[in-house]
Write a protein that binds this DNA or RNA. Structure first.
Length: 883
RNA sequence: AGGACCGUAGCUCAGGGGGAGAGCACUUGCUUGACACGCAAGGGGUCAGGAGUUCAAAUCUCCUCGGUCCUACCA
């Protein structure tokens, strides 16, 4: 497989396809519960089966994959469970739309045939998203893929439902819930989205039945007056004290309803008198229960007025009814005023229809006791949330939690395991479908299904086989970390916490990592309707998976949203290509058989320096990934590869690789191979494909699958911080020559000479040792360093540290240009020197600041003084020459 | 109403008590033996504003202004 030539540019398409099938065949992600090593496990946030991959998924998958791949490198036993969610309402809507196109409907098909149809749909489209997960390079365990409607997971759902019912934590009752008249189903509070709407505030006249006065009430929904069963005022409101206990005549209807007193009423709002419609308003419902008011429904499930609304209004839609009611009131002189009023209106999160509060028999989970435990688990640190700021949000939601409505009047989902006896009316909740009631009566199963999030809440343990006692459950629960975006913190994370703690007696995950939301370049949330979606697959086809993954990683700073644009991904493709070309160059200079030179003892500066920096990168990269600082890992590797490895090390190594010194050449090959190999392993979790492709061409590796290569061990003998200081002096000398060349417009082709005068023995030794290197990097004809180097008359000069750098110029020197150049550098350096000097002059600083800070400042002071002095001297020299 | 986050180079953003950074864009010069998806050298900042804590503040605290988002309520 080893091959020393690579194509000139990196072409991701073939490479990715090749390694995807390689990893699929080798079962790269397959976990072994009995293997050695500390377990590390993640369950994927299951995307909707019928959905397609969006950028949020792409980021989510990238983060999880980096963690999993890195943990494998560290020798952990890793399980990453993939899967999908049945997304009840959303999926049912999609299939219903398809049916509508065919001129059919679910009612025409009937329940069983419809469900059959959804399964077919799932079979056809459910594979799409899984394939997209594959394309992202996600190293999940495909042998353990799950779907929320699988047999095993359905069993878990039923077990949980029955147990919660037996424990009194699930109950059924007639309550007011959010109802979507279009989807024809109940919605949980969370599934209602509020958006501000322009509306009107109507003031209506309610006349006392005994004719002794009138009350003006304010309302935004005049049509609901048909269902009013009281008028409420604040008990301490003097304006209305006399009215309490009396009856008023309901306008248009004529029914007499009581005036009640309740502290809920806000005296400041409107007129301070509130019409009470228990059947059609959440707060009125509570009010009605407190005062034993009749619950009068005047609307049906489709949002149309029913018989109870009266003959004049029956059959009208809620919108039409409002118009007619207002007209009728106006006619009768009962409409006092109409003013504009902005308020927020609840909409169905799936279809955006205005939600109608609706009283109906529903199933609820008593959330309080579960929430308390879920809160405590985070408080005591059993589960940690990253970034930490989200814990406040998590607490706040749990502290104000209301019972969770879990029944949905749709067909696609887990059917509620409850039966009512047609004979005696007994309610049976059971694990196994019962045949008949004890009384012998026939049973009818509850037609409703469960909220999709009910099954999602069990995901961390249901996917591992619960309620059976499986090896997976034993080895991998609790999972290590949950990776998700904040928008499902309540929907999903909090509920998994509740269920996991209740049924497993242990948190579902040790950590929760909340990552960014991916937005468009303007910071708007990407959505199909706005048309600002960037399709990850199109980006993958265009720039490659690695470029996309690296982009997302580099921008994935904790607690921040990502503004993504195509140009950015394109930019990181250049980085992938840079790596490719660095490898290409390396391979051109590496033999098939590694020389096997040991890299110890005193090494030439550039080798010692890059090996030291590599040690730092190894330490920093792993630490950053384990702390969820993915952007730091990516940015560190980016600048190491580009600005250090490519710009300096490879250039420096050219002097060895193309030279005649065979020993130096062999040593350089060994060092280059070592750094490149380990760098590939470091980059692999972020960019699996390109690193694998290069790896497969590199000689000397028995393990051809880079995903199986352990993280490189630390080499303490290569930690040499002095090498960094020496290398930066070398760089400073080289840069100063390049600067002279550039600013004095000297052709790059022209070889210059360079002389350095230095009083420092260590600097001198280094400069002399690296003559060949400096000559190459600065494109010199000759290089001389010494303690008493004299400056040729016609020469440009610069300061490198406290050393003088001279570049003799063949022709006439432009003294003015040279002076300007030196002055610029002097001004910059003098400014820095002054800041440091001022600091050191401050006695408080030298007395109170930590010793190492003061020492560092003194060192800096010395260096800057030296440089300033040198620049002044050089400047003086030019001035003398000029005159 | 309550809460969270953000304001740093033209743009997008890192950093988070001790030398103001990156990418892109910009200027200049380059067929330098992997790379023009490139190389080299540059220009560019009141770290939103104000006050405080500190020997030292872009960084911590408070206030003001501007922006984003979440939760709740809105008869």
């Amino acid at each position: 497989m080893s091959d020393t030539t690579l194509a000139k540019g990196y072409e991701p398409v073939d490479v990715e396809a090749r390694w995807l099938s390689f990893w699929a065949e080798s079962g790269a992600g397959t976990a072994d519960p009995d293997a050695d090593g500390d377990p590390f496990s993640i369950v994927i946030p299951p995307p909707n089966v019928t959905g397609t991959l969006h950028m949020g998924h792409a980021l989510n998958l990238t983060v999880q994959d980096i963690l999993c791949r890195h943990m494998r490198q560290l020798g952990r036993k890793v399980l990453w469970v993939p899967g999908t969610d049945h997304a009840g309402i959303a999926t049912q809507n999609v299939v219903e739309r398809a049916l509508a196109k065919e001129g059919s409907s679910r009612h025409e098909l009937g329940r069983e045939a419809f469900i059959e149809r959804v399964w077919e749909w799932r079979k056809e489209y459910g594979g799409k998203i899984l394939n997209q997960i594959r394309r992202m390079g996600a190293s999940v365990d495909w042998t353990r893929e799950r779907f929320t409607m699988d047999e095993g997971l359905s069993k878990a759902v039923r077990e949980v439902f029955v147990r919660l019912y037996e424990e009194g934590l699930i109950y059924k009752g007639d309550y007011i819930i959010n109802w979507c008249p279009r989807c024809q189903t109940a919605l949980a509070d969370l599934e209602v989205e509020h958006s501000p709407k322009k509306g009107a505030l109507y003031q209506l006249r309610y006349v006392l039945a005994d004719g002794s006065g009138e009350l003006i009430v304010a309302t935004t929904r005049p049509e609901t007056l048909l269902g009013d069963t009281a008028v409420a005022v604040h008990p301490e409101d003097e304006r209305y004290a006399a009215f309490v206990g009396k009856m008023v005549k309901l306008p248009l209807v004529g029914r007499e309803i009581p005036v009640i007193a309740d502290a809920y009423v806000d005296r400041e709002f409107g007129t301070g008198a509130l019409k009470v419609t228990p059947a059609h308003d959440m707060n009125d419902f509570d009010l009605g229960r407190r005062h034993n008011l009749e619950i009068l429904q005047v609307m049906d499930g489709e949002g149309n007025m029913n018989a109870a609304a009266g003959a004049a209004y029956q059959g009208l839609s809620r919108e039409a009814c409002r118009k007619k009611v207002v007209e009728d009131l106006k006619e009768q002189g009962l409409l006092v005023s109409v003013e504009e009023h902005d308020h927020s209106v609840g909409e169905c999160y799936r279809c955006k229809t205005v939600v109608e509060p609706h009283v109906s028999p529903q199933w609820f989970v008593k959330a309080g006791p579960l929430a308390e435990v879920a809160r405590a688990a985070v408080e005591t640190g059993r589960t940690q949330i990253y970034p930490e700021q989200w814990t406040t949000t998590y607490y706040h939601w749990l502290d104000n939690i209301r019972d969770w409505c879990i029944s949905r009047q749709i067909w696609w989902g887990h059917r509620i395991p409850a039966w009512t006896c047609q004979a005696c009316g007994k309610l049976i909740v059971a694990r196994q479908d019962p045949a008949a009631c004890d009384c012998g009566g026939a049973l009818q199963q509850d037609p409703d299904v469960l909220d999709t999030w009910f099954s999602s809440a069990l995901w961390p343990f249901s996917t591992l086989g619960w309620p059976d006692k499986t090896p997976e459950l034993k080895a991998f629960y609790p999972t290590s970390v949950l990776v998700t975006a904040f928008d499902i913190l309540f929907f999903w994370v909090a509920r998994m916490m509740m269920m996991g703690l209740h049924f497993m007696d242990e948190v579902p995950f040790r950590h929760v990592y909340i990552h960014a939301l991916v937005r468009d370049a303007e910071g708007k949330k990407m959505s199909k309707s706005t048309g600002n979606v960037i399709d990850p697959l199109i980006m993958i086809d265009k720039f490659g998976t690695d470029a996309l993954r690296f982009t997302l990683t580099a921008f994935a700073a904790m607690g921040r949203d990502i503004k993504l644009s195509e140009e950015r991904i394109e930019g990181y493709r250049h980085f992938v290509n840079k790596l490719w070309n660095a490898a290409r160059f390396s391979l051109m200079n590496l033999p098939q058989e590694l020389p096997g030179v040991p890299l110890d003892g005193e090494l030439p500066l550039h080798h010692a320096w890059i090996l030291h920096r590599l040690e730092e990168m190894k330490q920093a990269t792993s630490a950053a990934i384990q702390d969820y600082r993915f952007n730091e890992a990516a940015q560190g590797l980016y600048s190491f590869l580009w600005l250090e490895f490519c710009d300096w090390y490879l250039e420096a190594a050219k002097s060895d690789l193309s030279g005649e010194d065979e020993a130096a050449k062999a040593q350089a090959q060994q060092c280059l191979w070592t750094v490149l190999s380990e760098l590939l392993v470091l980059l692999h979790p972020i960019m699996p494909f390109v690193t694998q492709e290069i790896w497969s061409h590199l000689p000397g590796h028995a393990q051809k699958d880079i995903s199986k290569v352990p993280y490189p061990a630390a080499r303490p003998q290569h930690v040499k911080p002095q090498a960094v200081a020496m290398m930066s002096l070398l760089q400073e000398v080289v840069v100063s020559v390049r600067n002279i060349r550039s600013e004095l417009s000297i052709s790059p082709a022209l070889k210059l000479d360079c002389l350095v005068r230095t009083a420092d023995p260590a600097d001198l030794a280094m400069l002399r040792d690296n003559e060949r290197l400096i000559t190459l990097l600065a494109r010199l004809g000759s290089f001389t360093a010494g303690p008493d180097v004299t400056a040729p008359k016609a020469s440009a000069s610069a300061a490198a540290g406290g050393n003088a750098v001279f570049v003799p110029l063949a022709g006439a020197v432009d003294f003015d240009a040279e002076l300007a150049r030196l002055n610029k550098e002097l001004a910059k350096t003098a400014k820095e020197a002054e800041i440091v000097a001022r600091k050191l002059a401050n006695e408080d600083f030298t007395a109170k600041a930590p010793a190492e800070v003061v020492a560092k400042e003194r060192e800096k002071d010395e260096m800057l003084r030296g440089k300033v002095a040198k620049l002044e001297e050089l400047k003086g020299r030019i001035e003398t020459l000029k005159s």
